[in-house]
Each structure stands twice: as structure tokens, then as C-alpha cells.
Simulated assay, not measured.
Amino acid sequence: MDLLAELTARRALCIIRAPAIPDPVGLAGTLVDAGLPIVEFALTTPDAPRLIERASGVDGLVLGAGTVMSAADARDAINAGARFLLTPGLRPEVAAEAVRQRVPVVLGAMTPTEVAAAVDLGATAVKVFPAARLGPAYFGDLHGPYPNVPLVATGGVTTDNAAEFLAGGALAVTAGSGVVGPALAAESRFDEVAERARGFVAAVGGAR
């Protein structure tokens, strides 16, 4: 799976972080049908590897694991069916395991020094957080010294500002609780998820 090609085509991925996800298959299928098929299940959700395993067979889904903090987390997620990994910051052990298993990894960073470190560790792309506080122009600033580093804007990205981050230089943006809020996932309120996801996809599509 070529994660960069997927992100280039879709320009968005969805982060799911909830106290419970009783129907991961239904939730994942809803997002695929809404045009948001690149999905991350955060390992902070209870029993996340099992949720990944259950959802991994959904047609059209590109499923990954987020908040991966250790090599053991990485192995558990990959064994469960995760096709890519994301970290909240620089996690050398996670990067090494991902590289060893040839699984794409998106490492978290904020500063130019951290972006360089992420690249040195073998990151497929770099997740810049908190994007909303840094602003869309920050991505253009980072591309000065790092013109070829794929950047993913995370944190505070909404339907109202997603296009600005893409125009500013982000390869892709993340849809978070504004699309799949914790309560929506825990209560399987898929109609609301679908409506929000379609709105986010429309916002991202308008930036292409």
C-alpha cells in the first residue's frame, strides 16, 4: 500500500478516538461510503487492536493505527491488520519497527528540528501538530528548508479551514472529533458521521 499515493489522492484521513467503538465495521464502512476511506483507530481506545482486526476487512478501507507509542504497540497494530502507523511525536522505536516491517509510518513533529529528525528516522510523512495553533502559513514556512517532505496537518482542522492548510502546503489534513466525535462512535450514530464526513470531503475537494 502506497500511503503517500493514497493521501495525495484523498487529501484527508480520519482520526477516531472514542471511549468505545461497538461497531467498528459499520463505522469504517460509513466513512468509506462518505468518501473518507483513510482511517486511523487510536490505540487510546480500549481494545483497539481487536477493533482494527474486526474492521480490517471492510472493502475500500485504508486502515491504520494512531497514538502508537512503542515497538510493542506497533507490532500489535500491524498484527491486527493496520496498514500504516501514526505517532503523536518522535518515537524512534516505533519508526524502527515500522521500517523493519515495511509499514508506512507518520511521525508527529512541530518544530523544524523535529521534522528533520522524523525524516531521519524514516517517516513516510510528518504529522504537524497542533496545526490550528501554528496556522496554515507555517506549512509553507516548513517547505522552505524541507520542500519535499510530505506534511499532514493535525489538530483543530475543520471543514471551515481544511482548504487553507492544503493551500498552505499540507499534503493532507486530518478529520478528528468534528467528524467522528467520541459520542457518535460510541453510540453508532452513523447517519451523523456520514453527514459530517461528506462535508469534510467536500471542503477538502474544493482545495484541489
Rank of each mutant, 00 (worst) to 15 (best):
M1V: 06
L3E: 06
L4T: 05
E6F: 09
L7N: 00
L7M: 02
A12H: 15
A18C: 12
A18G: 11
P19F: 02
I21Q: 11
L27S: 06
V32Q: 11
V32N: 07
L36V: 11
P37Y: 11
E40Y: 09
F41D: 05
A42L: 13
A48E: 04
I52W: 00
E53Y: 08
E53D: 15
A55D: 01
L61A: 04
G64R: 10
A65G: 11
V68R: 04
S70K: 07
A72S: 15
D73K: 11
G81Q: 09
A82T: 12
R83H: 06
L85P: 14
P88M: 06
R91E: 13
P92T: 06
E93Q: 15
V94I: 03
E97W: 01
V99Q: 09
R100V: 06
R102P: 05
V103A: 00
A109G: 13
M110L: 11
T111L: 06
P112K: 13
A116W: 07
A117D: 06
G122I: 05
V126A: 05
L134T: 02
L134P: 09
A137L: 08
Y138G: 14
Y138W: 15
G140I: 02
H143F: 04
G144A: 14
P145F: 09
P145G: 11
P147E: 01
P150R: 01
T158P: 15
T159D: 10
A162W: 12
G168V: 13
G168E: 10
A170F: 13
G176K: 01
S177L: 06
S177N: 04
G178P: 05
L184T: 06
F190H: 07
E195Q: 13
F200S: 08
A202P: 10
